[in-house]
Structure formats: structure tokens, C-alpha cells
Write a protein that binds this DNA or RNA. Sequence first.
DNA 1: CGCATTTGACCCGCGC
DNA 2: GCGCGGGTCAAATGCG
Length: 217
Amino acid sequence: MLNQSLFEDQDMSSQLGFFAFSSNPYNLPFGCSQPSLKTLTAVAGSLAADTQTTLSESATQKQKEDVTSHFGEPPQLRSLQRSNANLWAWGEVNDCMNSKKNGGDNYLGVATIKMKKIKARRKVREPRFCFKTLSEVDVLDDGYKWRKYGQKVVKNTQHPRSYYRCTQDNCRVKKRVERLAEDPRMVITTYEGRHIHSPSQDEDDSQASSQMNNFFW
DNA sequence: CGCATTTGACCCGCGC
DNA sequence: GCGCGGGTCAAATGCG
């Protein structure tokens, strides 16, 4: 059932695993009891870098060469971890949090504060896991409660990408949900960050679900 | 009425 | 420097 997985280990500051459940009849990478936990554990033992990006026709030759060099043949999955987006650095966060404008930055208007918050937020890289699942529904029940905060049409795809945030206070875990351009039956779910709490207790969590959640977070 | 979702605007990083 | 594309915000809207 687990027939594809792609990893790239370029930046230990962030982690991303890419799992493909292309024939998973149970849909749920977290909640289902059927996927082989051993297999998942083995796969997830690897570390990968940064953002998962769909390699579209518009991808640069360099990107395609990178993929080819890393995975031998051009991957059917056509997804990769783009390392050049890994410029997020704690140093930049510090720069944002401190005043980097010498003189004249004593005044912090609302807009300025907001800007700094946004920039600081964007600079922080959280561990990421990416799942590919065969599912008719976009949002997979992983035991946590999510609030949608955005939707975006991604270039070269006919399906919009949805952005969700964990509804738990102080939990900054986010996830992106999109459908594979090449196969709309496939749902790609990317989790970013780690939950600081247990899954919602009012969900019907199976034992496997708990195991999976403990394993990932 | 409160909470979740939608959606257009905005910001930032990156490539050219 | 500029334009593009991805990610986020927040007001408007929907829904129970």
C-alpha cells in the first residue's frame, strides 16, 4: 500500500517526510489502523528538507535536474523538496525581532508591529510531514480540529490549495490540503509543526490513531 | 449570536 | 528593480 516515498536530506533544521498512500482504501494516514506502522516508521525515519513543491511543467531545468539526480529517474510523483527555499534562518528572525533600522525605528506603529509579526512567523520553520492519500474528501480526519484560514489556486493546478490551522489555543500547527494535479483522486496533506496537545477527545480515536499521533507529534 | 468558512487584498521571497 | 506566485490576514458571509 505504501508504494512511493520521497525524501531529501539537505537541511536538518526542518524535517519533512513524504508519504504516498496511493492505494490506501482507508484514506487516513493517521486514523486508520490498516497501514503498516512498521513500514511508516521505517519510512519516517528519514529526514527531508523544507517545502514540498509540485514540480510543474514550468519548473526550471535546474529543478528537474535536481530531481533526476536525487531520485534517478524523473519521479512519477513529480514532487520534490525544494532546498533553495531553505533560506529561513533564525538569524533573520532575530533581525526582525530586533530593530534593524538604525535610528528612526523607535516608533512602532501598528502596521510596523504587524509586519514584524508576520515576518517573524514566516521565518520560523516547523517540522513538516507530507502525505499523499487516495480520498474523495479533502480534509482527512486525523483526530485534531482544524480551522480553515485560506484557500489559494496554485499555478498549473485546477484544484485550489486549502490552508488550515489547529484550533487549539497556543497550538500553531498548520496543514495544507491540495489535490494532485496529475491525479485529482489523490489528496496531498502537508502538516507543519508539532501539536502541543492530544487529539480532540470527542473524536472516535482508534488505538492505531493514537499510536500514529504519538509517533508523529 | 457565535463560530467557521470564504475570498479578495496584502506581503514576502525569489527569479529574471 | 520588477513581476510572479505562495502564504496569510481579516472583513464579509454563511450556518447551526
